[in-house]
């Protein structure tokens, strides 16, 4: 199971959510262990039977105002009880200040209070999205990810089939490389995205040459840090009598992290210009997304023609 230390959380989100720390310091051992956010209104009013204490606790204007209405002894008792549990942190919106007692107990129990300048609504959705993405499952695949005409194409196939060489040709044709060899796939807002496993730059191995730096060689326009993964192209060696797709009326799919994407099995042979075909695949994907399927259109036109001719034939036979 993934976890996120409060220190890392603060560092990553400091600018995005305009955060500052109210309590003395950020403890080393506090961790966020699940992507959900809780607004502890009921717990503050004394109902602790179902208090998901392991979640990030978000306090908005309502909660803070409510705390201010409580008599001091009740307030102390409630907060004390609440903070005996292992809460990862409190996040307060709108730059509001919490009662002094809360600050005091939090320091004592080593639970950080973090304040954001954002409105409760913005902070809630922002945090939810951030945590959802952070805790989203990921997976590494052997392949090369390129962006062709804005379409994320994942090239796969056995080692040495020519994925990198194909990507290189695509870069030459002004498309972009995301990562070569290992692609880290991740769900973001229920869409499949691909990244490099390490943020060390865009290197690539070309057989016979060695490692090259794509960004240095081709410039910043040749690379991207991440891209959606829209379609997979599996390169495979050309074999006689193999059943390759001829029409394109049946669409094959493959699955990553529970998301289905179209998959094309592309036979390659020496001298075949794979990169141009990848461009065609990308453009065809765009057309299909816009609702136009070339194979279907041709099929429809021919079917109409054949129907008409068949009708004509029946009429002629009748007349004779």
């Amino acid at each position: 199971m993934k976890e996120l230390s409060i220190k890392d959380f603060f560092d990553i989100c400091r600018q995005r959510f305009v955060l500052s720390i109210v309590t003395d310091a950020l403890p080393d051992d506090k961790k966020i262990v699940e992507p959900h956010i809780h607004r502890p209104g009921l717990a503050l009013s004394g109902f602790f039977d179902r208090f998901p204490h392991q979640r990030v606790q978000l306090l908005g204007e309502t909660e803070v105002n409510y705390l201010q209405t409580l008599p001091e002894d009740v307030l102390y008792e409630r907060l004390e009880e609440m903070m005996t549990m292992n809460i990862p942190c409190f996040v307060v919106s709108k730059g509001l200040s919490v009662p002094n007692q809360m600050d005091f107990i939090a320091n004592e129990k080593n639970i950080p209070i973090i304040v954001s300048r954002l409105s409760t609504e913005k902070l809630f959705w922002g945090l939810a999205r951030f945590l959802h993405d952070y805790f989203a499952p990921d997976q590494s695949v052997h392949g090369t990810l390129v962006e062709v005409f804005g379409v994320g194409v994942l090239l796969t196939g056995r080692s040495g089939i020519g994925k990198s060489e194909c990507a290189l040709e695509l870069i030459e044709r002004k498309h972009r490389l995301i990562t070569d060899d290992v692609v880290r796939l991740k769900l973001q807002e229920d869409r499949l995205f691909g990244f490099s496993t390490k943020d060390i730059g865009h290197f690539m191995e070309i057989r016979g040459v060695g490692i090259i730096d794509v960004e240095r060689m081709f410039g910043i326009e040749a690379i991207r840090k991440e891209s959606r993964v829209d379609i997979q192209v599996e390169l495979m060696p050309w074999r006689e009598n193999m059943d390759y797709e001829r029409i394109g009326l049946t669409n094959q799919h493959t699955e990553h992290l529970g998301i289905e994407i179209p998959c094309i099995y592309l036979p390659v042979s020496p001298g075949k210009n794979v990169s141009v075909i990848i461009e065609v695949i990308a453009m065809n994907h765009i057309l299909k997304t816009y609702g136009y399927d070339g194979a279907e259109a041709m099929q429809r036109k021919l079917a109409e023609e054949m129907q008409q001719k068949a009708r004509q034939r029946t009429i002629n036979t009748h007349n004779n």
Binding site: R246, I247, M298, Q299, L302, A303, M306, K309, A310
Partner: peptide, 14 residues
Amino acid sequence: KLGLHARPSALLVK
């Protein structure tokens, strides 16, 4: 009945 449409054509060619 439908003539030599896409599917039969593909079978034939294969």
